[in-house]
Amino acid sequence: MNLYDFNKLDLNERMETVNQLGTFLDNYVTKDVRINCYAINKFFVEVHYDAEHNTITDVTAFKYGHNLDKYSKI
């Protein structure tokens, strides 16, 4: 699976792919935001949660960049 193929999937298929192929790396939690970060092959996936409704709101993929900054403990 590559990033292009992953981005063509719908939300449920993306989540299934994360469950089957993803390696959990870290999470980012604030008062309003809950995000888990996973690695699949050579890209990263963020799973966004709505804690109030206990639902997944978004699953986004990327290769690098500012999306990774929130996981550094500086």
Rank of each mutant, 00 (worst) to 15 (best):
Y28A: 11
Y28I: 06
H48L: 02
A39R: 15
A39D: 06
Y71Q: 06
T30K: 14
Q20T: 14
K73H: 13
T57R: 06
L21W: 05
Q20A: 14
Y28P: 06
Y4V: 02
A61E: 04
L11G: 01
E13R: 10
A61R: 02
K70P: 00
G22D: 03
L68Q: 05
K31Y: 11
N36E: 15
L9A: 06
Y28V: 00
V45S: 08
Q20V: 10
D26E: 15
V33K: 15
K31R: 11
I35W: 08
T60M: 06
D69C: 02
K70R: 15
D10E: 10
K70C: 04
D32M: 01
Y28F: 15
I56L: 05
G65A: 07
K70G: 05
N19G: 09
Y49M: 10
N41L: 13
T57K: 06
S72F: 12
V45F: 10
E52L: 14
L68G: 04
F43D: 01
N19Q: 13
S72N: 06
Y71N: 01
N2I: 06
T55S: 12
L9F: 13
I56R: 01
V18Y: 09
F6Q: 07
K8G: 02
A39T: 08
F24E: 11
M1H: 13
D69F: 10
L3W: 08
V18G: 08
G65T: 05
V18N: 06
F43C: 03
Y38I: 06
V47G: 01
F44G: 01
N19R: 14
A51P: 00
V29C: 08
F43V: 02
I74V: 09
F24L: 11
A51W: 05
T57I: 00
D32E: 12
N67M: 12
E16N: 09
H66W: 12
H53C: 00
L11T: 01
N19V: 00
D58N: 14
N41I: 04
H48N: 12
V47K: 04
E13K: 14
E16I: 09
Y71C: 03
R14K: 15
L25S: 10
V45W: 08
L25D: 08
G65D: 08
A61T: 02
L68T: 03
N36F: 07
V45D: 13
R34A: 12
M15P: 00
G22Q: 04
V45N: 10
Q20H: 15
H53N: 12
F43P: 03
K42V: 00
D50Q: 09
H48F: 13
I35F: 11
M1N: 13
H48E: 07
R14D: 04
H53E: 11
L3Q: 13
H53F: 09
D58H: 09
Y49I: 07
H66D: 14
Y38C: 02
Y4H: 08
N36S: 13
N36M: 08
H48Q: 08
T17W: 02
N36G: 08
N12T: 00
F43M: 02
V29D: 09
N67H: 12
E16C: 04
V33I: 13
D50A: 07
D10Y: 07
K31G: 00
H53W: 05
T60W: 01
R34G: 02
V45G: 09
F44M: 07
L68H: 03
K42G: 01
H53A: 09
V47D: 04
E46Q: 10
Y64H: 12
F44V: 02
R14C: 10
K42Q: 10
I74Q: 14
Y4Q: 12
E16R: 13
L9N: 05
V47N: 03
V33S: 13
